[in-house]
């Protein structure tokens, strides 16, 4: 992604997860983590998304539908591998119908499943890195174009 953004809207695709990653993703939307506070959100349509978030090792049957969703997301866009399976080091790596995760992910959230607090931190750190990291001075009103 080239454009510096302060928010990231995410479309989720399950590509063979055990549903642990889904449940932790759902936890992020709950009151304890409330990811919307940080400009992050899970959206219904790829057209509204900046990012594709994949869970699971990418099964063969989900391979093409996942690509369709990726193609439907307007550029610039990023790919997020959520969980060890999607990161290419999960328990189903060597299954015959597994494509071994998302090789070209821009953001990798490790864990089996990732704990929501840590996942949130990885996503926020990535957002912050677009602006010079956590310690960058806050954006002033004059920045808005």
């Amino acid at each position: 992604m080239v454009k510096a953004v302060r928010s990231l809207t995410i479309r989720h695709v399950d590509a063979g997860s055990c549903n642990g990653c889904e449940q932790e993703l759902t936890a992020l939307t709950g009151p304890d983590y409330d990811l919307q506070r940080y400009g992050l959100d899970i959206v219904a349509s790829p057209r509204h998304a900046d990012a594709l978030l994949v869970t699971g090792p990418v099964t063969d049957t989900m391979f093409l539908p996942m690509l369709r969703v990726w193609e439907a997301i307007p550029a610039p866009k990023v790919a997020i591998a959520f969980g060890d399976c999607a990161a290419g080091c999960g328990a189903f790596q060597h299954c015959y119908a597994s494509h071994q995760g998302l090789a070209a992910a821009d953001i990798v959230v490790r864990g089996c499943p990732p704990e929501p607090g840590e996942a949130l931190e990885v996503l926020r750190r990535w957002l912050a890195s677009l602006h010079g990291g956590w310690n960058a001075p806050p954006r002033s009103a004059g920045d808005a174009k």
């Binding site: 055990c18 328990a91 189903f92 015959y96 119908a97």
Partner: peptide, 25 residues
């Protein structure tokens, strides 16, 4: 079966130690 990975095939030939990680997931 979009999530079909092939667990039962994967488990064939596995040792006792290798099974729990897969079966538990």
């Amino acid at each position: 079966f979009q999530n079909h990975r092939g667990l039962e095939t994967l488990l064939e030939g596995e040792t006792l130690d290798a099974v729990p990680r897969v079966v538990g997931r």
